[in-house]
């Protein structure tokens, strides 16, 4: 009984923190120039759009991210709150870890894994080597 109560109390105290979780997603389209993508970034906090952030977008290759990355660009706020637009100039197709550096209302960094192809970009869903129990 006491355990359940403690659990409940902890849950409710944690709620505001839960609400603070910052998330991002990406919608990209390849432009006419090779490997330059027009990207729309949606950023939310606790499920609500987060406007007014200064967003810098970079990208790393998962293999050797320190040496293989592209120059980060500043994103501009889009028409809808919580949306930001950026042009990403990648070196090649394939998987990139897009790095969003957020400043302003939040000071945070998001890493989004996307597969970039001839059309646009899809979130990476990776299978495990062994099935999980």
């Amino acid at each position: 009984m006491a355990k359940a109560a403690l659990g409940l109390i902890l849950f409710f105290t944690a709620l505001p923190l839960l609400a603070q979780k910052v998330e991002g997603e990406l919608a990209c389209r390849l432009t006419k120039t090779d490997f330059i993508y027009d990207c729309m970034i949606r950023i939310s906090r606790g499920g609500l759009p987060l406007p007014g952030a200064a967003v810098t977008v970079g990208a790393d290759m998962p293999s050797m991210p320190m040496a293989h990355n592209v120059k980060p660009v500043k994103a501009t706020p889009g028409k809808t709150p919580g949306e930001y637009a950026a042009k990403l100039d990648l070196e090649m197709l394939g998987e990139w870890a897009v790095k969003l550096r957020l400043r302003g209302p939040v000071n945070d960094q998001l890493i989004l894994l996307y597969e970039f192809d001839e059309k646009g970009a899809q979130p990476v869903r990776r299978g495990d080597r062994l099935p999980r129990k």
Partner: peptide
Amino acid sequence: ELIHFQREIDGEPIGPDGTQGFRGIRWVF
């Protein structure tokens, strides 16, 4: 790749998750 070892922190699972990687190493922030 085989390590799946996570803990609930602020309602979110944190820790190495195999090939899905390990997110939220946010001490600096």
